[in-house]
Nucleic acid binder design. Sequence first.
DNA 1: CTGAAAGCGCTTACAG
DNA 2: CTGAAAGCGCTTACAG
Lengths: 348, 348
Amino acid sequence: MATKGKITSLDIAYLAGVSQATVSRALRGSPLVNEETRRRIEAAVKQLNYKVDKNASNLRTQHSGTLALLIFEDPTADDSHINPFFLSMLGSITRACAQHGYDLLISFQQFSRDWHADYADSKKADGIILLGYGDYLAYRDKLATLVEQGTQSVRWGAVLPDQPDVSIGCDNFQGGRAIAEHLLAQGCRRIAFIGDASSHYPEFQERYRGYADVLAAAGVAVDPALQVDAETTELAGYEAMQALIASGAPFDAVFAASDLIAFGAMRALDEHGLKVPEDVALAGFDDIPMARFVNPALTTVLQDTRQAGEMLVEALLRMIRGEKVESAILPVKLTVRRSSLRGGAGGK
Amino acid sequence: MATKGKITSLDIAYLAGVSQATVSRALRGSPLVNEETRRRIEAAVKQLNYKVDKNASNLRTQHSGTLALLIFEDPTADDSHINPFFLSMLGSITRACAQHGYDLLISFQQFSRDWHADYADSKKADGIILLGYGDYLAYRDKLATLVEQGTQSVRWGAVLPDQPDVSIGCDNFQGGRAIAEHLLAQGCRRIAFIGDASSHYPEFQERYRGYADVLAAAGVAVDPALQVDAETTELAGYEAMQALIASGAPFDAVFAASDLIAFGAMRALDEHGLKVPEDVALAGFDDIPMARFVNPALTTVLQDTRQAGEMLVEALLRMIRGEKVESAILPVKLTVRRSSLRGGAGGK
DNA sequence: CTGAAAGCGCTTACAG
DNA sequence: CTGAAAGCGCTTACAG
């Protein structure tokens, strides 16, 4: 039937005995089309297995029905070792896109290199979602350029006073507070913080601020000797923990700025014969799926990735529609597991 | 400078003092363009921050420089609980696409519903990669339809004699053999298999065949009472293990058809006071990132997702180029960890 | 409610 | 090496 060549709306028009314009109207759901005509067209579409050519329709309408997701990662990142937290986000973003009838283009980006953010300019995507950690101070300029050029974009990350872009982030400060309060309630007083706490990594910095805030309010000294930098990998957490132990500074709890860091810390503690939670209470941040499987299961802060993904997509779509969009902060939830429980719950 | 309206190749042409056709040639890297002319054009492109409109160029050239990845999942699947193995695949596929200069569109699909495989027909993608478990016998017809309609596609999955499509899969049979041999070598004789072993799930079936093959060769009975169905989730593994324990059939080892199943089995064993590996040796399949973090760390079979992703993408691109492409089987690698070690390595 | 026609922004034979 | 022109397959004012 179909003459091998590509089937176009003209073929449908011919088969249905109408003009090509009417086919287009019918397929776009225009109310102007007669019910009977529409039925004939739909029959023809089915018969020839016709699909509208998106390149043509996108060219004509000047939008693509597609969003792009850029995930930043370390150059060191190995295939399968993308931060699981971002993979969860990816899942919920994909789903949110589908719900809104948008397709999703994804791309991993090296943080340090020039971003391939051309998806929007080249009309492959109507807007861009940015995801991933990296040095914010380096980040900032590129973000500003993006925004200046009028690229529609939203970012997952810390929500700060003067940032150039629209961001959605979780309440890192409250999360940090929750962990610190919990560890204090467990009787810990020498609580180490593993993770960068500078303005280069605002999310970690906020977690640290929450932690320091609670300690100070409780009259517990915030000892700089108990803070060790680490990027978000198991290895960095391991090495930072080693360094802390080697330093000889006494501690009875560890607040790792992310779950991956906590896993590394757990391994280092184990190698040094320090038991979690009996000798050292341990907590992380993110609540990635693995957190409940490690032994002991990890106390952490749940970031609701489902909600986050929906917020990101919805914010971006509103932006694309030309509405004014504000940054937003999502609540977090403390998730207590065995790794931080000093009392009777510990032990084998 | 740019008059707010969209910048097109005509603007570049005007600025560079050439025709629009020459701009197009220069930007596509045609050797016909004079060096000096090319430089002027490139300067203009930079000055106006021009990007080629992909919708227009794709429409003209009739291909999109994009591949689509469909990931099938259970309707029950929660946001963040996509099988981590497929997330690893997603990572390596994304990377492989980037290496080949292709963009990647992703979409989660409900297995039971009609697939939204229109990416290719609508010219949004040049081809499709299929990923995910599901009832193969139901799957098969849809696959056949896809292939019939001439949609370019490759699938990750079992490589079987009569399948309609091109598949890349790992050597499930050898993987099953490797686990069984290892468990036998540990002195186990009553080795349970948790996972579906029917032709509905050919990958699991192959793993089961490898296992049964080795047992038979070693003169160990393959007891049907020791095989319990389970889909690939932690919960299904947990429930299947409960059922097996409740059945009263004695066993000294468990071969779970996937790591997620193994995690669930581990939890059930733990709740029943059965120690891994002392009382029961346990092995999984996939080597997802969590496998090394559970306690005890899980013996499993490594599927090389990096290689798999590259193979899938390369096969699909060859197909798109019109080359003949065959299905292929990738080697696997036994990864022994503490969960299966009966000897001195066990214990705390 | 429908059709004829213009045009989205490119790419690429064709002619020079 | 370059330009003028056709055309990819749609969508949408415009006219009826």
